[in-house]
Amino acid sequence: MPSSSFTTTASDVFETGKYKAALRRVEASATQPPSSSSCAPADPPPKPLLIAFPAEDAGEFPVLVFLHGYLLYNSFYSQLIRHVSSHGFVVVAPQLYTVAGPDTTDEINSAAATTNWLPRGLADLLPPQVRPNLAKLAVAGHSRGGKAAFALALGKSTTPLALPFSALLGIDPVDGMDKGKQTPPPVLTYVPRSFDLDMPVMVVGSGLGEIRKNPLFPACAPRGVNHADFFAECRPPVCYFVAEKYGHLDMLDDETEGLRGKATYCLCKNGRAREPMRRFVGGVVVAFLRAHLEGDDVGLMGLRDDGHKVAPVELQKVEFLL
């Protein structure tokens, strides 16, 4: 059996898992230095990567591709992806861009290219005893990255996917500024249960995301283009969680450095602290991946039945369509 196989409960997903998770940064092919070195990957990825993986245990582990939010750095999710990895997953977080306009086409195609690179290069970047299982592959994204994840799963990339995804996760996904002001290419159709997705889906929302921080800035997850609208278009099987008193960026690291890092505290309505929301998001991601990649649904069904009791945040909504 793979070393990641063990039973998950409804509460232990919110705690650090049994694996010691490590992080590795990898430069993209276009950013490699002119002179090659022994530590440079033989087949560098199309985009810079932050990879979280179980560092010390031997085994075969499922893989999650995680797409960052608008104008955010993948490093801002270090604590979140390490939490997920500590439960027996390899998490690959590409830096899709550093500057971008409203059109998401390039980042969707970059996410597709990164996914297609995984069979060629991922194993070489991991310890020899850590084997990525690309037959168990999921995609997740936060904010605009959530939109990109849905777009990728819906086949909207012009770069054809060489690998199929087995599960899709939207972490407070956002499809623009407002209904009728979606960023191209639009994902939401406003037709209930219209997403033609041959995979299970989880949508996680923030209760404060649709509230403005102040009158000078729009809400970070506006009504009409946020998690509620994505959930409304998902067909079963889909599960839906909304954390009531937490904001759109509250799953980021406690410390996000630089100008962009400081801006994450200023632009969106926030909860009292990031740690509870980050632990909640990490936990539901683990439970969902366990259920749909590993066949262990004990944790996910436990959250359906007792999520209000065991979650580290107050839940505004828990809904499952099976």
Rank of each mutant, 00 (worst) to 15 (best):
A228N: 13
T256S: 11
V238M: 00
L216H: 05
C239W: 02
D250G: 06
A219R: 07
F241P: 13
E244L: 13
D253R: 07
N226L: 05
P218G: 10
T256Q: 10
C234F: 03
E233D: 06
P237M: 09
L216G: 02
C234L: 12
K245Y: 14
M277Q: 12
R260F: 13
P237E: 07
R260W: 14
K262G: 03
E233T: 12
R272W: 03
H227A: 15
V225E: 04
K245D: 15
G271W: 04
K245A: 14
K213G: 01
R279V: 05
A263D: 09
M277I: 03
G224M: 07
L252I: 08
E244A: 15
E275G: 03
G247S: 09
V242K: 12
P236L: 02
A232G: 13
A273R: 14
G261F: 07
K213W: 01
P237N: 06
E233M: 10
T264H: 08
R235E: 12
A219I: 07
G261V: 02
N214H: 13
D253K: 05
Y240I: 15
F231E: 14
H248E: 13
D250W: 04
L259C: 01
R235L: 10
C266P: 00
A228M: 08
M277H: 11
N214L: 04
R274V: 05
P236S: 12
E275F: 01
R272I: 02
L267H: 10
R278G: 07
R235Q: 15
V225P: 07
Y246D: 14
C266F: 14
F241K: 11
L216I: 02
E275M: 03
K213Y: 05
G224V: 08
Y265V: 00
M251D: 11
C234Y: 00
F241G: 10
L216E: 11
V242F: 02
A219H: 07
D253P: 03
A219C: 07
V238R: 01
C234K: 00
L259H: 02
R272S: 10
M251Q: 13
K213Q: 15
K213N: 14
F231R: 09
V225R: 05
T256R: 04
E233P: 08
E244S: 14
C234P: 01
C239G: 10
A221W: 11
R272Q: 10
Y265T: 11
G224I: 04
A273S: 15
C266S: 13
C239Q: 06
P276K: 03
T256D: 13
N214T: 07
A228L: 13
H227G: 01
C234D: 00
D229H: 12
P236Q: 05
A232I: 08
K269G: 00
K262M: 12
D253V: 01
M277V: 02
V242Q: 10
T264Y: 09
D250I: 02
L216N: 10
V242T: 15
R274Y: 06
E255A: 07
F230K: 08
D250F: 03
P236D: 06
C234R: 00
A219T: 08
D253H: 06
F230L: 11
R279C: 09
A243D: 07
N270R: 15
G258L: 09
L249Q: 05
N226M: 05
F217S: 04
H248D: 13
K269Q: 15
K262C: 03
F217T: 10
D253Y: 08
R272H: 04
L252M: 15
V225C: 06
H248V: 09
P218Q: 09
R278T: 08
